[in-house]
Nucleic acid binder design. Structure first.
Lengths: 253, 253
DNA sequence: TAGTGGTCTAGACCACATA
DNA sequence: ATGTGGTCTAGACCACTAC
């Protein structure tokens, strides 16, 4: 078989990218469209290869890349599954704050207190981060996370109002699990990637009070933008972390 | 050809790992032994495949993993090269502090001032981080990095005395390039991976003075352990970053 | 036993770099 | 023109999981 033209190239538009990458994009679209839900298996490599008219090796390379980006999870003997934040070891994969006493496999925060959850109009900077227009509706949530009774994280987060209709404080309080798991289960929004900007700051009086520290205690400021498929930003989150008993852990490759 | 037993399994020790991983380990040893120097090309895939008695596809998979770990760099049409910190875009790959005004492709710090460089006996915590014994000789370096005339980073670093004989303040001052590039060129020590612990702290009087801030300015504390091949720790570095005009940038996959 | 992903091979051709 | 890595294929067998 000759190769690149392939059964899926558009008639006129030149495609100039390897077959497996074209396939990968097609699968990405299916994932985004909800063809398979988080946690569910996708068809086997040979099924997909047949469906797209490529060899199993090519299909494998496409899926390998999706697995490398944490979009799917391969399990030998069982199949390939759509990744989900609901799985145990994925629960807090974006949370890099860990207790100083080792325990990298630690659990997430024990107590979560919702301070507020309301719909409002996006300020300029929130709108910019979410690629909305200033004044568009967003949902703002403020909460405190505590470890062993000690309030440790204060975070504010903003979500596009359209995608998160019906998100309320009650809904958040009932939910026992990671917030990102709630987002994918209840709102069909899967966060696949994020960027963070870290700074050292001093809290204002209200922030200090919520974290039970004084205003001269330096805190780690973590501003995160989380993205769903195709690099679409779906959450802006501003966290203040106490780093007296915990630290932010990072691996440099 | 039958497969796993392979031409390289030891006679009695069971090996139970895929051929390509065994090959990978062998190549790793050659890299560590200095068979090919940083920046130099390693033999072509087909040469290596012949040398180890495996197919080119298996060789490719072994090299793919080494490339994924930044130990080698593939360049189409040219060959595969031993990774080096000396290359332009690798100069500061462990430095995540970037100016607030975008410019992710920014240069490294413009001015570096060596405050001190001396040999001394390792304290308990330094020894632990470097897997030495308390009292073993280490080299300590303290320096300040400035961006646009503004002192922004104060860092102390400790290196095993044995591996870094002859490292002096003069040597560091003459060197125009990343410190890790000096380490590999002059001392044959290649840092391939690192972990960092971040905290928000207040500086003491001396630290504040060196960074031209007052002692109530919160700073980002970054404690890094850098590893060479086979997860051997070779550097402990404690940095204090000013985050008024810069921030620590992190990507979460 | 059957189905899945994981490994390994052998060979063809493409894209890129260099001489 | 030659040599490199990059892509694609086809087919074999292994390891794990489930029934």
């Amino acid at each position: 078989m000759s190769n690149v033209p392939s059964p899926l190239a558009e008639p006129s538009a030149p495609s100039f990218s390897p077959l497996y990458q074209q396939i990968k994009v097609l699968i990405l679209r299916l994932l985004q469209a909800g063809e398979w839900k988080p946690g569910e298996p996708i068809p086997s490599e040979s099924d997909l290869a047949a469906r797209f008219g490529v060899s199993q090796g090519t299909m494998r390379k496409a899926i390998d890349e999706l697995a490398a980006e944490n979009l799917v999870v391969r399990r030998q003997g069982k199949g390939t599954f759509v990744a989900t934040h609901a799985e145990h070891h994925m629960q807090y994969r974006f949370l890099k704050l860990v207790p100083d006493d080792g325990d990298v496999t630690a659990e997430g925060p024990a107590v979560r207190t919702i301070i507020e959850c309301r719909r409002l109009r996006a300020s300029a900077d929130v709108a910019r981060a979410l690629t909305l227009r200033t004044g568009d509706t967003v949902v703002q949530v403020r909460r405190v996370l505590a470890y062993g009774g000690v309030p440790t994280i204060l975070e504010d987060l903003w979500l596009p109002g359209n995608a998160f209709k019906g998100l309320t404080a009650e809904r958040l309080e009932e939910w026992h699990g990671a917030m990102y798991a709630l987002f994918e289960t209840e709102f069909g929004v899967r966060m696949v990637r994020a960027t963070e900007r870290l700074r050292a700051v001093l809290p204002d009086a209200q922030q200090a009070s919520l974290l039970a520290v004084d205003t001269s205690t330096p805190l780690l400021s973590v501003e995160r933008v989380a993205f769903t498929y195709h690099d679409t930003p779906m959450e802006l989150r501003r966290g203040l972390y106490r780093t007296d008993t915990h630290h932010y852990h990072n691996e440099l490759g």
